[in-house]
Computed example of a mutant assay.
Amino acid sequence: MPAQTRPDTPEILLSLLTPDDKLWLLDGDEGCWPGLAEMSAGYHLNPSVMGANSRHTTL
């Protein structure tokens, strides 16, 4: 059975972020060239973490 989401989930998650957290999410953690090299070897061979926040990993 697929997980059910609440319609207000994005708002709940955004309310947990500080302004600094939100600014951090605008910039990727992986550099451009290393990221391009990895993707050119085979897109989706390895998962890429996008927008991780260590304070909220239990959500």
Rank of each mutant, 00 (worst) to 15 (best):
T58M: 03
R55F: 00
D21P: 08
L13R: 08
L59C: 01
L23W: 04
G31I: 06
E11D: 13
S54Y: 04
P10N: 05
G51R: 02
S54G: 06
D21K: 06
A41Q: 15
G35E: 11
D20G: 08
L26P: 02
R6I: 02
L59R: 05
H44G: 13
T57P: 00
L17I: 02
I12P: 00
Q4C: 01
P2A: 12
A37Q: 14
S54K: 04
S54E: 10
A52D: 02
N46D: 13
W24P: 01
L25N: 04
S54V: 08
L13Q: 07
S15Q: 08
T9C: 05
E38T: 12
P19Y: 04
S54H: 01
H56I: 05
D8T: 09
T9R: 09
A37H: 11
E38M: 13
P47F: 08
L14R: 09
I12Y: 06
C32P: 07
G31M: 10
T58W: 04
P10R: 06
D20T: 12
S15E: 08
A41K: 15
L23N: 15
T58F: 04
V49H: 05
L36S: 12
A37T: 10
M39V: 13
G35K: 09
L36N: 11
L14T: 06
G51I: 02
Q4A: 06
L13K: 06
T57K: 00
V49C: 10
T57L: 05
P10D: 05
L25T: 06
P10T: 08
D20P: 02
E38L: 14
Y43S: 11
S54F: 01
M50P: 01
D29H: 10
A41E: 15
W24T: 06
D29N: 11
M1D: 05
T57D: 00
W33A: 15
M39S: 12
P19D: 12
W33R: 15
L14C: 02
R55G: 04
L59G: 05
Q4N: 03
W33G: 12
T9E: 12
D8N: 12
L13M: 10
Q4W: 04
T18H: 03
P34T: 13
R6G: 01
D21E: 08
E38H: 11
S15W: 04
K22C: 09
P2E: 08
P34Y: 09
L16T: 07
Q4G: 03
P7I: 03
A52P: 00
P34I: 10
R55N: 07
L23P: 00
A37R: 14
L13S: 02
P10G: 01
T5N: 03
W24M: 09
L45K: 15
E38Y: 03
P34C: 14
D20Y: 05
C32R: 13
D27I: 12
P47K: 11
L59K: 00
S48H: 14
E11H: 05
L36P: 07
A3K: 03
D27E: 14
P7S: 03
D8R: 06
P2T: 07
E38V: 09
R55W: 00
T9V: 08
